[in-house]
Amino acid sequence: MTIGTHLDMFHGLPAHNFPGPDATTDDLPEPDSVAWRISSYMYDADEEWQKAISQFCAAVDTTRVRALIVGAWGEVFESGPSPIIEALLAARDRFPALRALFLGDIVMEECEISWINQTDVSPLLAGFQALEEFGVRGGSGLEFTALSHSALRTLVVETGGLPAEVVRGIGESDLPALEFLDLWLGTPEYGGDSETSDLEPILSGARLPRLRHLALRNSEMQDAVAAAVASAPVVERLEVLDLSMGVLTDEGAAALLSGQPLTHLRKLDLHHHYLSQAVEERVRQTLEAAGVQVDLDRDDADEDTDNNGTVWRYVAVGE
C-alpha cells in the first residue's frame, strides 16, 4: 500500500487547495473555515514554494487561519523543506490563530513516502508555541530535536522508516498536553533503525501525562513492539492502542495478551496483521467480551514465499 490521496480533512477542517497564480482568488472560503494546502506544484515548475506562501499571505487574512498544510515544494526527492520552514517562521507573526500544521502532504504520484527529503522539524514547534496539532510525512533526513511544548495535543510522524534519533528526540521531549501520538516506525531498508529500547521513554509515559491514543505502527518489528507495550506503564491510561500496519504475528499477539489487561481500552487496532485464525479468535474473545472495539482487518497483508522456502511479510507502507 502507498499513500495515493491527499489529506481531505485536517484539524477537523476540510482541506482546501490555495489556487495557483493564474486562478482567481475572489471566491476563496473564509480564512478560518478550511485547512489551507499550499503546494508549489500548482505553480510553474520553476516556481518556488516561498512565492506561493507570499501570494497566500497577500490574498488571505492570515490572522484568522487556523490550519496549514504544506504540500509538495518542488523536487521533494532532491531537496528538503528547510526554505519552507524558514519562510513560515519569518511569517509567524502573521498567523496568530494558527493551531495546526502538516509538513509534507505528498502522495505517491509526486514522490514515494520514503523518498521525501525532510529536515529538522523542531524549529517549527519551537517557533509556533500555540500549535495544537503537528504532522510530518517522510523519514529521509528527518530530525526531531528534544524540546518542550506546552500546547501540542496531536503529533503524527508518517514514514516508511523512522530514524532512531527521531524516536529518541520525541521520547525526550516534554509534551504535557499531548493526547494523540502516531509514529510510523517502518523498516530498516528505508531508515527505520529504531529498537524497542528507543521507545522506553514513550512507553513509560513519564513526560506524557495526558496521552490517550498511542499508535506505534507500520513496523517490521511489530512483535517486539507488542511485547514491550504489554508491560508499558503508559498503557493503563490509554483509550486507544494502535499496533496496526506492521508485521504482527502470533508471537506478538500472544505477548500482548499475556501482559497487562487491555480491557479498559475503547479500541485496539491491529489491522494489516499476520495472525492465525486461532489467535485472531483469541484476541476477539478476550477483548470484545469486555466491550473493546477490535480491528483485525487483514487489508492486503499477504505473505510471499521464495524458492528457498523463506516467508516474506511486509509493512503496509514502505517505499
Rank of each mutant, 00 (worst) to 15 (best):
D193C: 01
A290M: 09
L268Q: 08
V157I: 15
L199M: 05
D304F: 09
G259L: 07
L175F: 10
T62E: 11
L28W: 13
L175N: 05
G104T: 07
S204C: 10
T159W: 04
T187H: 01
V157H: 03
A164C: 08
S82T: 15
G252Y: 04
V311F: 06
A91W: 09
G160L: 02
A23Y: 13
D27H: 13
P14L: 06
A224C: 00
I69P: 10
L216D: 07
C57Y: 01
E75L: 11
D302R: 12
E220C: 07
V292I: 11
V167I: 12
N307Q: 11
N117W: 02
S79H: 15
M42R: 15
F95N: 10
A289R: 14
G71Q: 05
T63V: 10
L211E: 01
A87K: 14
S194E: 10
S219V: 00
Y314M: 05
T187D: 10
G141H: 09
H271Q: 11
A151R: 14
A206W: 00
S150V: 11
A151C: 14
P29A: 03
T2G: 12
E109D: 15
I106H: 09
S79E: 14
E158W: 11
S140W: 11
H16I: 04
I3N: 03
G74P: 09
A177V: 09
P201T: 01
L248T: 05
L155S: 05
N218T: 07
S79G: 10
P209D: 08
Y43A: 14
K51C: 07
L7T: 07
A253I: 12
T5P: 00
V294G: 03
G71S: 03
L256C: 06
V157Q: 02
V283Y: 03
E195W: 01
F128K: 12
W184P: 00
A316N: 06
L214Y: 04
